[in-house]
Structure formats: structure tokens, C-alpha cells
């Protein structure tokens, strides 16, 4: 019982400690910019569409739909790194956006650097497949939803008397709480700790140290997705999926966040 109380304390405490979305409402002119971007895209004026969509981003507003359409515009303008970045951003905010996933795969065909990585074990693929299907916010909602369900069953048991069906449902609900809590925890942790970015320069040398006089380790090209291991002034240490590490100037990378 004491253990259960500690779980509630830390579990709810963890959820309440997560940064919360602000209550601001979009500006009135935002829809105008966005709509003009869509109109320009439809009429094939991709430069105008790009300007309109970027205007929305400059006003600090974002949405999966905006990133998706911006990705399409970048693709049409042959900006491979921009398209990869925008589709990745779309999927970051809505991992279930199928069109963005398709367009990202299609764009990646044009990325020069192709790194062959060994196939992940099936259980890991399954786990990551489930985890990455939802955003951290959605996982928080699932956990809280199951928690509410569990508490309702507890209350029914307490005031309505024992019932086998309710007891089984209660146990099932607590199992779901634990499972979704694990996914929530991992999802929030990886989102806050792991930063990724897209190489934004056609071709860039990756250096052994964060200064221009150090040794060139290897070369990467636009559109490649990398993890950012650490930051030093205006230099970033990047890590490729095959484990290669090196430093590049931060102006050559677009961060996914």
C-alpha cells in the first residue's frame, strides 16, 4: 500500500512537472499568411508559398500541417535538406501523418549519404514502433486516461462493493497505466534529452575538434539526419547512425525540436 502511494506521488508529480503548453491564441493575420501560402502552392508559385509559410514560422506559430506543406514547397524548389527537415518536423508533432512519412521517404531517396545500419531486433522494432507512433503529449494523455479509469474502478469497488468484473477491470487498468507510463517516461526523456538535426549545406567536412584547423574525419551532405551529442560555442558534435562522431559549425545544421 505504501509502495502504491509512492507511485501516485511520483507519477502524478512527474506529470505535473512537465512543461505545459501556453494558452495563447493564434494571431488574426496567421490564417491569412497560411492561406496565401496554400493558394500560392496550388498555383505553382512555390517561392511565394515558401515566403508565406516561413512568415508563419517567424511569428512563432507551428502546426504539423504547416510543416508538411512547407516540406512539399521545399521539395518542389529542390531544397532537399529543407524538405527533409520540414517533414521530420511534421512527424515530430504528428507521428501518424502518413503523407509526411511517405514524402520523407521519397525525399530521402535524393539524400547523398546513405548509411547502411544493421536490422534492429524484432522486439526493439515493435517497441519503438509503438512508442514513436504517438507524441509525448499523447502518451501523457493515455497514461492519465488509464489512471482515471483505474481510479474510477477503485471508487466503484470502494462504494459499490466487490465485483469480479470490476476487480479484473481494475487490474487491467493498472497494468495499462504502468505500460503507458513507461512509454510516456521514455518518450519525454528522449524528446528532452536527444536532439537531432538535418545537415543544411550541400557538402560539409566533419572535423575531429570544434575548430577549423582540426583534422577532417569524413564528409556529410545535405539532408542527412544526425544526432547532436554536445554543443560548444557555435560548434556541434554530431553523431551518425553508424556511430561516427565529429564536429561541424552549427550554421550547417537545422535542429529538429
Amino acid at each position: 500500500m505504501r509502495g502504491l502511494n509512492l507511485f501516485w506521488f511520483f507519477g502524478l508529480g512527474f506529470i505535473f512537472a512537465i512543461p505545459i503548453d501556453t494558452l495563447d491564441k493564434p494571431l488574426d493575420g496567421l490564417d491569412f499568411y497560411y492561406q496565401s501560402g496554400l493558394d500560392a502552392y496550388q498555383s505553382g508559385e512555390y517561392e511565394n508559398a515558401k515566403t508565406a509559410f516561413e512568415q508563419v514560422l517567424e511569428n512563432n506559430w507551428e502546426s504539423p500541417e504547416l510543416y508538411y506543406n512547407l516540406g512539399n514547397v521545399y521539395f518542389r524548389l529542390n531544397d532537399i535538406s529543407g524538405a527533409v527537415w520540414a517533414f521530420e518536423m511534421c512527424l515530430f508533432h504528428d507521428p501518424t501523418h502518413e503523407d509526411a512519412a511517405f514524402n520523407l521517404k521519397l525525399t530521402n531517396v535524393n539524400v547523398k549519404d546513405r548509411i547502411a545500419i544493421p536490422e534492429a531486433p524484432i522486439y526493439l522494432k515493435l517497441y519503438l514502433g509503438v512508442k514513436e507512433r504517438y507524441t509525448p503529449n499523447e502518451w501523457v494523455k493515455f497514461t492519465l486516461g488509464f489512471l482515471i479509469l483505474f481510479l474510477l474502478f477503485v471508487i466503484i469497488q470502494k462504494f459499490g462493493g466487490y465485483s469480479t468484473a470490476v476487480n479484473v477491470s481494475e487490474n487491467l487498468a493498472i497494468i495499462l497505466v504502468f505500460i503507458s507510463f513507461s512509454f510516456t517516461f521514455h518518450s519525454l526523456w528522449s524528446d528532452s534529452k536527444i536532439t537531432e538535426g538535418i545537415i543544411d549545406t550541400y557538402s560539409i567536412d566533419v572535423l575531429s575538434e570544434p575548430n577549423t584547423s582540426s583534422i577532417v574525419l569524413f564528409q556529410v551532405h545535405e539532408g542527412l539526419k544526425v544526432s547532436i551529442a554536445q554543443h560548444s560555442k557555435n560548434w556541434l558534435e554530431v553523431e551518425l547512425v553508424d556511430g561516427k562522431r565529429g564536429w561541424i559549425n552549427e550554421k550547417n545544421i537545422r535542429i529538429i525540436h
Binding site: I18, I20, D21, P26, E62, E65, F102
Partner: peptide, 21 residues
């Protein structure tokens, strides 16, 4: 590539918290 997404955007302030209201 697949065509544009003309659904109503789910606007969110950039750099806002991970969890919504």
C-alpha cells in the same frame, strides 16, 4: 510527393511546453 494538406492547422506556439492544456 503527395499533395498538400489543406486540413485546418492544429496551431501551437513554437517552443511551448510538451504537454497541452
Amino acid at each position: 510527393i503527395r499533395f498538400m494538406d489543406d486540413n485546418v492547422p492544429r496551431w501551437k506556439k513554437s517552443n511551448s511546453g510538451l504537454v497541452d492544456r
